[in-house]
Computed example of a mutant assay.
Amino acid sequence: METALELFHKFYDPIKPVVFDKNEWAVIAIATITEGSAIYIYAKHRIMRLSEGLALILFNVYLTSLLEFILATRPVDLYDTIDRDSGELFDFPLELVSYPVAMYIAMHFFLSWKIKKRYFVLLVAPVLCALEWICLRYFSLFTYKSWNLMLSFLFYIGVLTLNVNMISWIHHKVAANGGSKNVK
Rank of each mutant, 00 (worst) to 15 (best):
E2K: 08
E2Q: 13
L7I: 07
L7H: 05
H9Y: 12
Y12A: 06
D13Q: 15
D13K: 14
V18H: 00
D21F: 09
D21W: 14
N23M: 04
W25K: 12
A26D: 02
I30N: 09
I33T: 03
S37I: 13
A38V: 11
I39F: 10
Y40P: 10
I41D: 14
R46M: 02
I47T: 14
M48Q: 14
E52M: 04
G53D: 08
L56E: 04
N60A: 00
V61A: 10
V61N: 04
L63N: 06
S65H: 09
L66G: 12
E68M: 14
T73M: 13
T73R: 15
P75G: 01
V76E: 00
V76R: 02
Y79P: 03
S86K: 13
S86P: 06
G87I: 00
G87W: 07
F90V: 01
F92P: 01
L94A: 07
L94R: 01
L94M: 11
E95K: 14
S98Y: 00
S98P: 01
S98N: 13
S98Q: 03
Y99E: 10
V101I: 11
I105C: 09
M107I: 06
H108Q: 11
H108L: 04
F109R: 13
F109E: 11
K114D: 01
I115Q: 07
I115P: 08
K116T: 11
K116I: 09
Y119C: 08
L128C: 01
C129A: 06
L131I: 13
E132L: 04
W133Q: 13
Y138R: 12
S140D: 12
Y144F: 08
K145R: 15
S146V: 08
S146N: 09
S146P: 02
L149Q: 02
L151Y: 05
L151E: 04
S152M: 01
L154Y: 11
I157H: 10
G158N: 01
V159D: 08
N163S: 07
N163V: 02
V164M: 11
V164C: 12
I167Y: 06
K173R: 13
K173L: 04
V174T: 15
G178D: 02
S180R: 15
K181R: 12
K181H: 04
K184R: 15
